[in-house]
């Protein structure tokens, strides 16, 4: 089931990148997709963590929300860079992730890193170590707004 879905994704990827639709090239595409699916099955990476198909339906909505957050904080970081006084107050802190699956925690950690102004430096269990450019960034993460959004995205499950 997961293998079939992975194969479909990979073949769609091939079609978009290739742009040439002759029988020979399509055959080569099918062959490489089959090889990739076979190898990744043997490596046992095609599971809820490696190919979380359950998250697909809410993926787009989450991405839009994340994008708006990224734009806001990128603008804040830009203002700090342009400011001649360079008003930074680097802060390191720890926050708990309330997600239940490794894929959810990885999504949370990556969302934090993608947002300019905050970087996840370490993940131990469900405790993330965060470096924030300004003190307010660390406060926001401790407030847990993003954590709740990622948990909502994760729920409904794989």
């Amino acid at each position: 089931m997961r293998q079939v879905s992975l194969g479909l994704f990979l073949f769609a990827f091939w079609l978009i990148l290739s742009g040439h639709y002759t029988p020979f090239l399509l055959a080569i595409g099918l062959g490489s997709v089959a090889l990739a699916v076979y190898v990744s099955s043997r490596m046992r990476v095609v599971d809820a963590e490696g190919h979380p198909i359950g998250l697909l339906s809410r993926w787009l909505g989450y991405l839009v929300w994340l994008y708006i957050e990224i734009m806001k904080s990128a603008w804040a970081v830009t203002r700090i860079i342009i400011d001649p006084k360079l008003p930074i107050s680097p802060t390191m802190t720890k926050v708990r992730a309330s997600q239940k699956t490794p894929a959810g925690i990885a999504t949370y950690a990556n969302s934090i890193t993608l947002t300019p102004g905050t970087i996840t430096t370490d993940v131990k269990g469900n405790v993330l170590t965060i470096h924030a450019l300004v003190r307010g960034g660390a406060d926001d993460l401790e407030g847990g707004d993003m954590d709740r959004h990622v948990s909502g995205f994760e729920r409904g499950r794989v």
Partner: peptide, 25 residues
């Protein structure tokens, strides 16, 4: 750093408080 909160007990995730690594489901 201006402020280091790394040694503090992390807030958030109220309903789940163990620090053990999460087992993959």
């Amino acid at each position: 750093l201006d402020e280091d909160r790394r040694n503090r007990e992390p807030p958030g995730g109220a309903e789940k408080n163990e620090t053990d690594p999460v087992e993959p489901k």
